[in-house]
Design a protein around this nucleic acid. Sequence first.
RNA 1: GGGGCCGUAGCUCAGCUGGCAGAGCAGGGGACUUUUAAUCCUCGGGUCGCGGGUUCGAUCCCCGCCGGCCCCA
Length: 477
Amino acid sequence: MLARGVEPYPVGVPVTTTIAEVREQYEGALEAGEETQDVVGVAGRVVFQRNTGRLCFATLQDGAGERLQVMLSEGEVGAESLEHFKHDVDLGDHLFARGRVIRSRRGELSIFAEEWQIASKALRPLPVLHKDLSEEARVRQRYVDLIVRPEARDVARLRARVLRAVRDYLHGRDYVEVETPVLQALYGGATARPFTTHLNAFDMEVFLRIAPELFLKRAVVGGIERVFEISRNFRNEGVDSTHSPEFTSLEAYEAYGDYDTMATLTRELIQAAALEGTGSTLVTLADGTEYDLGGEWTTLSLYESLSEKIGEEITPETSVEHLLRLVEKFDDDVDPIRQTHGKLVEELWEHHVGDHLWEPTFVRDFPLDTSPLTRAHRSKPGVVEKWDLYIRGTELATAYSELVDPVVQRERFEAQAALIAAGDVEAMRLDEDFLTAMEYAMPPAGGLGLGIDRLLGAITGLGIRETILFPFVRPLG
RNA sequence: GGGGCCGUAGCUCAGCUGGCAGAGCAGGGGACUUUUAAUCCUCGGGUCGCGGGUUCGAUCCCCGCCGGCCCCA
């Protein structure tokens, strides 16, 4: 091609019409074998080629996966041009063709080319289009996955629709979207290990955020009373089908709301996102099981549902020793750091109840010691006003009646400091500036955290690595 | 952290009891003016993940490492 002076990567080609527009305009309009005199210029990636001698066929695909056939005949483009086409054009190339819109004798809508040009030459062959790419190849080379697998393109577009639905819903409730620091001098808002980096200008250690919570609450103190952020968070922990080292969350805070307010908001938000994303609240998983996100959702009490399941009364007074014996029935190596009342109760509950909740279910009223940012329950002793939302056996969202009392908040931080001293690397750090903000008085508020990647999974039935366009993979070599 | 399965051509995969490395698609050459994963003839294509060991001989058996997936904690 270069020897003939053909440019393999031209600056542009004279496209007049997209493939989708041609399909839309002529789809129902032409009989098999019927020709128009309408000349269009189209471009797309060559995904199939068929060559019958003096007539060649190429199927072009656009970015959304729409396809259109191009026909090149010796009579129309000339023998020399057709020879060059056969020699130069491979699967995977971007091709431009200008010609009349016709329908072939076999009924395929086509462009009958009078002129063609390579719009961009592919140097690597396309994978087989009729077999699934291996899971590893999909994730490592998502750009190839997107070319060959319609589902990959659909997920990327569905994610965009869901995010827009989330924003639309919150804007409809007068929420303000803000952006808070990713780079933080002190991390907080969740119990997790952070990524650490170094700020050269101040010669200090800084952290990537594990959650935006403490900054969003500062915003509420300042008067942004309905505030949300769609936040990329970083947690330096295990990687599996439900955990990614970086993930996207929605956090939302509503002054004068509580955890009940946030439950209604969460249900409506997820239902709106499902309808906008897939047109239905019914979800079918790969193995055929179904669940419905529509209607009202079940609510459980954490202690009551656990007690019922194991046939024994568990309360906030149940001793650590007794809980440990119950956990050791299925986990024979409990980390000493995890041997607190709250952590053991939560592990028991997840094992016996949470892992089996497929239909959307709110579980309410958690142990106090594992929820240092949540207010104590207004009437039940020993628990906090917090719920977790479970769908498909995993935690999708959590919400609190937020703790706004700066004196109690300081005590909670001090209890966390004791855990740090005992070696708990996930315990929360005391944040003096956050406490100072609270001392200026934060209005009573409900707060919500929701995993966007898991929301995509709950709506589509896919794993987290399918819902993230470019998940982190260990480099080769 | 423990267990299981997997890694062979650009892609998807075969490869028997250890004996010269295989197919389909993709790619090169040829035939064919209405194909739909076109068809037909033909050719090229390999660090069998990496490193050791056993053996006359290892893609195959053993050990270690790297990478992936699944299950368990």
